[in-house]
C-alpha cells in the first residue's frame, strides 16, 4: 500500500469581506508525522485549520484529509479527525468524567462503553483524581489535558491542535508536549498551529511558516535554519558608543540587536575570512568588541528573517493560572 499524505491542500483561499485571510495555501503532511503551522497572530493559522477540519468552506482551492475530500466527503473527514480548538471547548459545569462520557456517546459508544472509555482517558491524562469535579475548578493545564482527551475518545487518523499551549505556564506546556509526543509515538498524524518557535522546533517534523495568509517557508527545522543562513555571529561591545557606531556601520547586515546587552547579531557563512573581515569593519582599532561567538541560527532568527518581525515572546501572553 502506498502511503498517501495525511493532509494535502492546494491553493486554499479565504476572505472575509475585503480581508484576504488566506491567499493560496499549499500543504502536504506525511502520515504519522507532526506538522507545525508557525506564524504570528492573524497570519491565517486558525482559518487553515478550520478549513481542513471541514468547519469552514474555502473560497478557492482543494484539500484532502485522511484521503477524503474536505468538501465532498465531509462526513468521512469528520469521522477521521479530531480538533482541539484554541479555547478549551469543554463544559465548565460538567465534571471531567461527564464531558468525556458525552464525547464518547457522540462518537457512537453505548452508555456503559462510554463510561469505561472515559475512565481510561482520565487515567491516561492524569485526571482520575479530578474526574468527579466540575471543570470550572480545573487549572488551565488540566483543562487543556481534558480538552485533548476529549479529542481522543476515538483515535483519529489526523489530530488538529490549534495553539495547544497558548496561555499555559511553562510546566503545563512541558506536560502537554509530553502528551503530544506520546500520541505521535502511537502513529497519530498531528497538525498543530503555534506562534512559539520553540514549540515548533520541539515537536514538529516539518514546519511551515505562515504570514499574511501565505506560506513563506517550509521544511524541517534544520532546513529552515539553513535556508536563512546557517550561522550567526553575536558580537558584544565594550561600551555603548562603539555599539551604536557598529550598528550604524553594519546597518542592513544587522539581523537583530539587544541594546541592553550591547549585542548585535549578524549573519555569516562561518568562514574565518568572513568573520575576520566583519570584525575588522566594525572594530578597526581592536578595542571596541568585548567578545563574540558564532552559533547556528535559531528558529527565532528564521522567523525574523522571513516575516520581518520578531517572534512573539512567551511572556507577552497572559499565563493561565494553575
Amino acid at each position: 500500500m502506498t502511503r498517501r499524505p495525511a493532509v494535502v491542500a492546494h491553493g486554499l483561499k479565504k476572505s472575509y469581506g475585503d480581508v484576504r485571510v488566506l491567499r493560496g495555501v499549499d500543504l502536504e503532511v506525511e502520515q504519522g508525522s507532526v506538522f507545525a503551522l508557525l506564524g504570528p497572530n492573524g497570519a491565517g493559522k486558525t482559518t487553515t485549520v478550520k478549513i481542513l477540519s471541514t468547519l469552514l468552506p474555502p473560497d478557492a482551492g482543494r484539500a484532502w484529509v485522511a484521503g477524503f475530500d474536505i468538501l465532498r466527503e465531509r462526513t468521512r473527514v469528520r469521522r477521521s479527525i479530531s480538533l482541539t480548538g484554541q479555547y478549551a471547548a469543554v463544559d465548565e459545569e460538567q465534571t471531567g468524567a461527564e464531558n468525556l462520557q458525552m464525547m464518547a456517546r457522540l462518537r457512537g459508544y453505548a452508555r456503559r462503553a462510554a463510561r469505561a472509555r472515559a475512565t481510561t482517558l482520565l487515567q491516561q491524562f492524569d485526571l482520575t483524581e479530578a474526574a468527579e469535579r466540575r471543570v470550572r475548578t480545573y487549572s488551565g493545564g488540566m483543562r487543556r489535558r481534558l480538552d485533548l482527551a476529549a479529542s481522543l475518545v476515538t483515535e483519529p487518523s489526523v489530530l488538529f491542535l490549534d495553539e495547544p499551549t497558548t496561555g499555559l505556564d511553562p510546566r503545563s506546556r512541558l506536560a502537554l508536549w509530553r502528551v503530544i509526543k506520546d500520541l505521535v509515538a502511537r502513529g497519530v498524524t498531528v497538525v498543530l498551529t503555534t506562534q512559539y518557535l520553540e514549540e515548533a522546533d520541539e515537536l514538529a517534523d516539518r514546519i511551515a511558516v505562515i504570514d499574511h495568509g501565505t506560506i513563506v517557508a517550509s521544511g524541517t527545522a534544520d532546513e529552515l535554519k539553513r535556508q536563512v543562513a546557517e550561522t550567526r555571529l553575536d558580537v558584544t561591545f565594550a561600551d555603548p558608543a562603539s555599539y551604536a557606531a557598529a550598528v550604524g556601520k553594519l546597518a542592513g547586515l544587522v539581523v537583530s540587536t539587544e541594546p541592553d546587552e550591547l549585542r548585535l547579531v549578524t549573519a555569516t557563512d562561518g568562514s574565518a575570512a568572513h568573520i575576520r573581515s566583519l570584525l575588522d569593519e566594525v572594530d578597526p582599532s581592536g578595542t571596541a568588541i568585548a567578545h563574540f561567538r558564532t552559533r547556528t541560527a535559531t528558529l527565532d532568527d528564521v522567523f525574523l528573517a522571513l516575516t520581518g518581525r520578531p517572534a512573539q515572546p512567551h511572556d507577552t501572553k497572559e499565563p493561565a493560572h494553575v
Partner: peptide
Amino acid sequence: SGAIDRFRSMD
C-alpha cells in the same frame, strides 16, 4: 466558546 466547533468537527 468554541463548543460548536468541537461538536461540528465530530459531525
